[in-house]
Design a protein around this nucleic acid. Structure first.
Lengths: 237, 237
DNA sequence: CAATATTTAATTTGATCAAATATCATTCAA
DNA sequence: TTGAATGATATTTGATCAAATTAAATATTG
């Protein structure tokens, strides 16, 4: 595999020798965020040693972090002991969106039960920053605030099972979403978020659910067109 | 170590280094099965060193396996660096069953598209062995064949996203299911499996779905009664 | 006696090393 | 030129060790 395909360059800040939180935990969070926001190329190779070198840590905590990400399907473990960022396929995409529609549909229905004014204003603030990112064509911030919006919405009510599952779905979507947004931009994404916020204010769970499901369907439409109609290889930028 | 202390006698010091599948993978499978079939007590502590000792392996591969199981929520990592089998709570149970109904409902609908006579007879064989386990009051085999039935059913059609998620849900249910079955036995579990098999033969996806959803709801009823009405502490045998 | 401080034991954590395995580039034969 | 062997390089893997951290057991104090 060519050097340019490697996803090892994640050196931003050397992991501080901090006490308390274990390195494997810190590294996990760091890698997770990078994958979530599309800083890893679909199909790109990941080597334990490469990650260890770029983070200036020994292999042991890297291994623990990476196995964890493999369990979440954010990374893929091949029989020949190689690790890579999964490529997106049509079947995979279809399953991910089916699961999202089901599970996020449940979460948004429940959200109404846990509304507080603080959480609502936080949600609106995130949505505002999302609008800003869109108007500036800032792909990375678009991805970040779009994720944060959904996360904040689903966190209106405590969820310790379904929400973590949903986050693994976003994690699997991250690398490919970045490619799509990078190519097409984010301008066409008129959002259903405002409708969802209004529905929450009206304490109307079904309206909120419809808005979010439409939001998901709209995103699905875009990424599916990319994958099927143009027959795009998601592993290339 | 001094040179004179080295043992160069080949006949005495064979290095027992396995080849093939990595130990962290084998250990993962082993632990996973134990959790799935309820050999771990809910709330029970798990120590890396304890697992390492019992499996006669060093800590390194154990750590990788356990982090993976933590990511799947089969185990729980506490801030104070302790690991335990999660206790079941009413909220958790409710979320697990909501997710199961949604996701397994999708899988069984799709199953009809991938039917082969081979898979159907395999399914019937599993169901037969399940009946046997029930009639003998064999809790462990009940759990095993009940899981295998659902797994075989959902594998009629390839699923690389939703099925693995569903399996993590079963994994979280394992320890508590064992407790419930151990206390109540398995005799009351009249199964919807026969109806599901017939529906598959009729290529009727909705009937198959209904059968499986009823099966899930029936199981939910039993375990919910245990947890809420009797206010049972699942962490005790 | 109860509550708190101190010591002791057990466990986790991260680095390092040797062995196993895989990848890559080169050579050599057809 | 192609394609299989070969050797060199890189990576993974599992064991081991020292340091950090936590839990427990013991001692101390009011």
């Amino acid at each position: 595999m060519a050097e340019s395909d490697k996803n090892n360059d994640i050196s931003q800040a050397p992991v501080p020798r901090r006490v308390g939180i274990p390195a494997h935990e810190v590294i996990y969070q760091k890698l997770r965020e990078k994958i979530l926001y599309g800083e890893f190329k679909p199909g790109g190779a990941v080597t334990l040693q490469g990650v260890a070198d770029s983070l200036q840590v020994s292999l042991t905590p890297i291994r623990e972090s990476v196995r964890r990400l493999i369990a979440e399907r954010a990374l893929e473990f091949h029989g020949n002991r190689r690790i890579s960022v999964p490529k997106m396929t049509q079947g995979r995409l279809e399953e991910i969106y089916t699961a999202r529609l089901n599970l996020e549909g449940e979460l948004v229905k429940r959200a109404v039960n846990g509304i507080t004014e603080e959480k609502l204003t936080a949600l609106e603030s995130i949505d505002h920053q999302l609008d800003l990112a869109i108007s500036e064509g800032d792909t990375l911030n678009y991805l970040k605030f779009n994720f944060l919006f959904h996360q904040q919405l689903y966190q209106m009510q405590h969820s310790e099972i379904i929400l973590p599952i949903v986050e693994t779905l976003w994690l699997q979507l991250g690398p490919s979403l970045r490619v799509v947004c990078g190519r097409y931009g984010t301008s066409g994404l008129s959002d259903q978020h405002k409708k969802a916020i209004q529905a929450l204010r009206d304490e109307d769970p079904l309206a909120a659910q419809k808005a979010i499901l439409d939001d998901i369907l709209q995103g699905r439409q875009i990424i599916f067109e990319e994958l099927s109609l143009q027959n795009v290889d998601f592993s290339t930028i």
